Amino acid sequence: MHTIEHDSQTQRFTMPVEGHHCVLDYELEGTVMTITHTRVPDALAGRGLAGTLTRHVLEFAQGRQWQVVPQCSYVAAYIVRHPEYRNLLQTPEVFV
């Protein structure tokens, strides 16, 4: 289990792993969370860490009843693979 930290001031979620930091950046306007960027350092690639971070953030948004706009291609693809999160989308018809 990885610890995920949220900094609402910088609008960033960070997951420290083995001296590196996986990050997910977003912009919040009202109750609409636009996810702009997800990054996992090359040294940590292939471990499913981006998925862990994305799932955490989508659960976070769901708990606050926020809508999500996935500008980040990874998050968009994640939602396609995990349709249980489509209800969060501001425009779910884009993902049909």
Rank of each mutant, 00 (worst) to 15 (best):
Y78H: 11
L24A: 10
P41V: 05
P70Q: 11
T14P: 00
G51K: 02
Q67S: 13
N87F: 10
F13V: 11
V68P: 01
A50W: 06
Y74E: 06
A50V: 08
F95M: 14
N87S: 15
M33I: 04
L58A: 02
H56F: 15
E5Q: 12
E84Q: 15
V75C: 03
T52E: 14
T14H: 01
V40P: 01
P92W: 14
E27P: 00
D25P: 02
V69I: 15
F60Q: 08
D42V: 07
I4V: 15
L89W: 11
G19R: 07
H20T: 00
H2T: 12
L53W: 05
L88N: 08
Q90D: 11
A50F: 04
I4M: 09
L24S: 09
M1F: 09
P83M: 08
V40S: 02
A50Y: 06
V94E: 14
T10E: 14
A61P: 05
Q90H: 12
V69L: 08
Q90L: 15
M1E: 12
F95I: 08
T10Q: 15
L88W: 11
F95Q: 11
R64M: 11
Q90N: 07
L44Q: 05
L89H: 10
Q11I: 01
N87L: 14
E5D: 10
P16L: 09
H37E: 11
G19P: 06
L44F: 05
Q90W: 10
T34I: 02
I79D: 08
T10R: 15
V40I: 06
L89G: 08
P83N: 09
T91V: 13
V96K: 12
E59Q: 10
R81E: 15
E18S: 14
V23Y: 07
T36H: 00
H2R: 13
H37I: 06
L58P: 01
R55E: 15
S73L: 08
V80K: 13
F95S: 09
Q65P: 00
H20E: 15
M15K: 10
G63H: 04
L89F: 12
E29M: 01
R12S: 07
P92F: 13
D42E: 13
R86C: 12
